[in-house]
Every structure is written in C-alpha cells, then in structure tokens.
Simulated assay, not measured.
Amino acid sequence: MNDDIMQKPPARRLGQQAFVLRDSPDGQDELCVLLVEPVYRDGCTLPGGSAEADELPHLAARRHLESETGLVLPLRTILTVDYVSRQTYPEGLNLVYAGGVVTPKQAKAVNAHRPPEHIRALHWVPRSSLDTVMPPARTRRVHDAWDAWEHGAGRPLLLRGTPVPVS
C-alpha cells in the first residue's frame, strides 16, 4: 500500500445540516421547516455547520442543531447531499439529515431558545415561502431534502460500512 497518496489531502468543507419540521404554528394544514438566519450571510439556511477534525458527521449535525436551536434529535438518515463548488469558500459537501417532525412542546422550546450570537433569528417557514427567505441554491437544497423526506428516500449514514446508531 502506498501511503504517499494522501500526504497532502485536498482541502474540502464537510457541512452538516438538519432538516426539522413542525406543524404550522397558525393552525394551517401545512408543515414548516426550521431555518436559522445567520449574521454572516444573507438569507436563511438550515441549522448546521462544519464538522471538526475526526468528529463524526451526524454528531456534528446534532451539535450544531442543539447550539443553534436547542433541539437534541437523533440524526442518522441523510436526505440529500449537496456539492458546492469553490467560490467564496473552499469546495464542499453539505449533508442534510432528517430530524423529523417535532412535537408542539419541542417547537415551543425552540421559540424560547436563545441562539448563539452568530444566529440572528430562528424561523419556521412553510415550503411555499422558502423562495422569499433563502437564496436559490439553498432553497433547492431544502426542496430536495423535503422531497426525499416525503418519499422516504433517505439513506443511513454508514461508519466503515455499518449504519451509525440512532442515538
């Protein structure tokens, strides 16, 4: 085996995001997705962020979800993988995990949560309004994750070929 191959591995970002839904807060028969509004970029995005060195991807997603929204959810199923070419940031992959539909009690806790200073606000947004609060690329990512969630098309994250535990 030649260990020289990876002496200088390529730099690439690995983003982890959570797709979390709730019933419409205004009583409409519509689901809403949880979005964060960061202070460092325009528009909203799914909760999440980068994994640290040697941090398991699903645990990075869970860590970011908890710090940004207060939710602690088992994240194992990947709904979509979004490749982002190098532009402002190095090229990267964003993995979007299924967080499921939260209970009214969990949604209330999110609304009471005080996010970290890099998050301006938390929003519950119906699918029909995504285009008004997100740039097109992020909107397409959320629509793709939503489609996968609706059709049960997600895939479990594997660790060396074995599905990660749900916890």
Rank of each mutant, 00 (worst) to 15 (best):
P104R: 02
E117Y: 04
A98K: 12
Y83W: 07
P116C: 01
H151W: 10
A60N: 03
V84A: 10
E91Y: 02
V133T: 06
A98L: 12
A148W: 01
R86F: 11
T69W: 05
T103Y: 11
T80R: 09
V101P: 02
P74S: 02
H113Q: 04
G100D: 13
T69I: 13
A107M: 01
Y89D: 11
S85T: 15
R141F: 03
G92D: 12
V81W: 03
A137Q: 10
T69K: 06
Q106G: 00
H113L: 06
A98C: 13
R120N: 02
G100T: 04
V102L: 09
A148M: 06
A153Y: 00
L93I: 14
K108D: 08
Y89G: 06
P47G: 02
P115S: 04
V133P: 10
V133E: 14
H58L: 10
L75I: 11
A112G: 02
E117R: 11
V81H: 05
W146D: 15
V72D: 08
H151E: 09
L73F: 08
R138E: 12
A53V: 08
R86W: 12
V133G: 11
L59P: 04
V142T: 01
R155F: 07
G100L: 02
E117M: 02
H118S: 15
R63M: 10
V142M: 01
V142G: 00
E117L: 05
L75E: 09
E52V: 03
L65S: 05
Y97I: 00
P90H: 03
E91V: 09
S67G: 14
A98H: 15
A148Q: 06
L93V: 02
T69L: 10
G100E: 14
